[in-house]
Design a binder for these strands. Sequence first.
DNA 1: GACCGGATTATG
DNA 2: ATAATCCGGTCA
Length: 193
Amino acid sequence: MSAGPAPTCAVPLPRAFYARPADQVARALLGQRLCVEQGGRRSLARIVETEAYLGVEDLACHASRGLTPRTRTLYGPPGTAYVYLIYGLHHLFNVVALAEGEPHAVLVRAVEPLSELPARTDGPGRLTRALGIDLTHNGIDLSEPPISILPGDPPADVGVDRRIGVDYAGTWADAPLRFVDAASTHLSRPLAR
DNA sequence: GACCGGATTATG
DNA sequence: ATAATCCGGTCA
């Protein structure tokens, strides 16, 4: 039995990483690595696009309608997964941020494959399909299998933009809460400016 | 129990 | 431009 330290690639980001407002977590998540172990397959991908959702005041955030069965996981501890189905078709993967009882979250909108993947990963619905993420992962801790987030190299250049698909959210629709690795060729959409 | 809309994607 | 497709929120 070796008592040596685990390989670096297996050490997830600490809980403290997520314990700050979602805009900070969204930016910091760029370049980190998403690891999904599913049905004997291990997928690895680099996070290149995120969006922050800032709790009850943010009209684009699901929590702005209060605590319901669906948004319950949003109110859970930081560093857990919030997964939901949209348009009856696509699973969207979010990371809970800030603190228990504070419904902040970061939507992961695009990743770059670091291992062979069966589908495109540039888009929030595509990446969950490629990685096999679905509702069964809602609420799980992201510091251990089957889904974990591991340290990676942050991008040299971060682009900031308004969020996609939240035109209904009044003044919040224009808030600069979308973050991308400006050099990535795997964004769901190019930067607006 | 009925109705409606959505943090999207593929296709025309 | 629009269909696909269904969960959960809202109102009754």
